[in-house]
């Protein structure tokens, strides 16, 4: 008998996280089980920087849905990624205020420096660039969102410093002009303790 074709199997993501699953599903009544779709997608994305097909199928299984439905919801949100984004997901606001304040030049600079264009991830998986619509921080344009954090008034020199820090994996938490929803010393730690993060964490 010839060799069997084995499809690459992926270990289920939630199999070793029963507590997390119970916690997330417990937020919703039984008839509204499908509501857990968003937090589950978010958990996967936070861990894997994208939600792949196998994960979509796994989430559909957990919630008793079809994978198509999960995909339908997921594809509505530009913040869920089908393909892995880089360790540093650079989101450049391309709406009016930022544009007037030099976002287009900022984009050109970042693109040239990282070697990728809008929607791409570099070979090393370090940087992805995405043009996004208004981030709601027009007063401090231009705004660059790196992963979940806003970096405001990003001039050319500040941008160069940020790039350097990212290349060295020494990116510091941003300093915000006005206190915002990430106005805590360590936003990641704050999320971990269950407080709202504003980008898809606990409701």
């Amino acid at each position: 008998m010839s060799a069997q074709l084995e499809l690459p199997t992926v270990a289920p993501f939630f199999a070793d996280k029963p507590d997390l699953l119970v916690e997330i599903l417990g937020r919703y009544p039984d008839y509204g089980r499908r509501s857990a779709l968003m937090p589950l997608l978010w958990e996967v994305q936070r861990a894997e920087r994208h939600v792949g097909e196998a994960r979509i199928a796994e989430i559909a299984d957990i919630l008793g849905l079809r994978a198509t439905e999960v995909k339908g919801v997921m594809s509505f949100y530009s913040t869920y990624h089908e393909h892995p984004v880089g360790a540093y997901h650079l989101q450049i606001c391309a709406t009016l205020s930022c544009s007037l304040a030099g976002a287009d030049e900022l984009y050109d600079y970042l693109s040239e420096e990282t070697g990728v264009v809008n929607g791409e991830t570099d070979r090393e998986g370090r940087f992805s660039i995405q043009k996004v619509e208004c981030l709601g921080s027009c007063g401090s344009a231009p705004v660059l969102q790196i992963n979940d954090d806003y970096y405001e008034r990003v001039t050319r020199s500040r941008c160069a410093a940020l790039l350097e820090a990212m290349r060295a994996d020494r990116l510091e938490a941003p300093w915000r002009e006005r206190s915002g929803d990430t106005d805590v010393a360590d936003p990641v730690a704050a999320r971990a303790d269950g407080s709202p993060s504003g980008t898809g964490g606990a409701p």
Binding site: L65, K71, G72, S75
Partner: peptide, 11 residues
Amino acid sequence: GDEVLDFIDRG
């Protein structure tokens, strides 16, 4: 009752 079709990339 088979949700095998959906809108993708809504917008």
